[in-house]
Design a protein around this nucleic acid. Structure first.
Length: 126
DNA sequence: AAAATGACTGGTA
DNA sequence: TTACCAGCCATTT
């Protein structure tokens, strides 16, 4: 099975109303530094809406790209309840983390703490 | 075989 | 805060 297929399989596990990142996905497949390749794999997604690749966003909270157009991606996300404002998503609340314990070869190691750490949403709002 | 590519990332300016 | 830049890696030239 190729890298591409593993990525697509994982993306199917992201629940509605939540999002994950290219980076997180890369780690989930066992290649923490391959986010670029992950993005490429998603771009090759043969079935855009069926396989929820629109639930994969940037680590900085940005929406990221989409083969059918970013506008379409945002629309899909909102339809699932994801709040997208000023082109940003609050990963602090909607970030979905893969359960590493149930996959891939043994090289997992602690990599990261809980839900804190990423986030980059502007505090200044109004 | 070697170089370029891209739905990215994190650090610096 | 936004802008730019080097680094990353499976795939494609």
């Amino acid at each position: 099975m190729g890298f591409k297929l593993r990525v697509l399989e994982l993306v199917r596990l992201v629940p509605r109303g939540k999002v994950t990142t290219y980076k997180e996905l890369a780690r989930a497949v066992g290649k923490p530094l391959a986010w670029r390749a992950v993005a490429r794999a998603l771009a090759q997604n043969p079935h855009p809406v069926e396989i929820p690749c629109h639930r994969v966003v940037r680590s900085d909270g940005g929406v990221g790209g989409y083969s059918l157009g970013v506008g379409r991606k945002i629309r899909l996300l909102r339809a699932e309840g994801v709040v997208v404002e000023r082109g940003r998503i609050d990963l602090g609340k909607l970030f979905f983390r893969f359960d590493v314990s149930s996959s891939v070869s043994g090289d997992n190691r602690s990599s990261r703490g809980p839900a804190s750490g990423r986030r980059r949403l502007s505090p200044a709002l109004s």
